[in-house]
């Protein structure tokens, strides 16, 4: 895996960029995940608000609901849940696609035709995953906050303006930026693990299934490990 990451970094900066393949992957990876991540975000915001409301009422701080929900979503739940959904959808699909291409000798055919398959298949996918996940997370957070606003209004009444005014008052640079930065690492991990598992898939259809499955498991684990490291780093930097 370390050698695979090293090769990725080398091929990433070496000239002869596969721009068309990269744009195609941005569309495939980003656009195809929009609906799933958007829906998840909406449900996440709505449910979190409805679950928190009774507890906050018990403590007499229900007015802090937008603040608590927005901090939870933007700092932790939004990035991690989006990344896990992304891993389930993208990492498995990359693992299966590249695994199947390996088994049917399509990767060898690319090499024989003079195209660098690593650059064409791996670099374009990992880079697209790295850049698309942060954008999807921003969208997911926004939809989750809107879901939360609807959740607040199920049993109460708050204007949209007042709700988002509370939200933006509560959020600071130290809440938004570290959370956004870690999504680049989540995206890179999802892309790299999916590509590694697929590209090095053993022969046979069982190998393809195994590549897809292990890509999801390893990506999900990697997301939690990166999250743990990110929390430690932001804590050391005094951003928590």
């Amino acid at each position: 895996m370390t050698r695979f990451i090293g090769r990725y970094l080398r091929e990433l900066v070496n000239p002869r960029y596969e721009v068309r393949a990269f744009i195609h992957q941005c569309y495939t990876i980003g656009y195809s995940s929009l609906a799933l991540i958007g829906t998840t975000g909406f449900i996440m915001g709505l449910v979190l608000t409805m679950q928190l409301r009774p507890s906050l009422i018990a403590y007499g701080v229900v007015s802090q609901l937008p603040v608590m929900v927005s901090l939870a979503i933007v700092r932790e739940i939004g990035p991690v849940i989006s990344a896990l959904i992304f891993a389930g959808k993208i990492s498995s699909s990359i693992g299966a696609e590249l695994g199947s291409m390996r088994v049917t000798e399509q990767i060898d055919a690319m090499e024989v035709s003079g195209t660098n398959p690593f650059k064409f298949l791996v670099v374009s996918r990992v880079l697209a995953a790295t850049l698309m996940l942060p954008l999807l997370t921003i969208l997911s957070d926004a939809i989750a906050l809107y879901g939360s606003y609807l959740g607040v209004n199920i049993k109460g009444h708050t204007s949209l303006q007042l709700f988002f005014s509370d939200v933006f008052d509560a959020l600071h640079y130290g809440d938004v930026m570290p959370a956004l930065i870690k999504t680049f690492f989540f995206g890179a991990a999802v892309g790299l693990i999916g590509c590694y598992k697929g590209y090095n898939s053993s022969k046979g259809t069982a190998g393809v299934g195994l590549a897809a499955n292990s890509a999801v498991v390893a990506s999900s684990l990697a997301i939690f490990i990166i999250d743990l490291l990110a929390v430690q780093i932001t804590d050391l930097l005094g951003l928590n």
């Binding site: 000798e105 399509q106 055919a109 035709s113």
Partner: peptide, 15 residues
């Protein structure tokens, strides 16, 4: 390699 053609047993067409 541009001077060599290779026909794979499995055809290896990009599906």
């Amino acid at each position: 390699r541009s001077h060599i053609g290779f026909l794979f047993q499995s055809n290896a067409l990009y599906d």
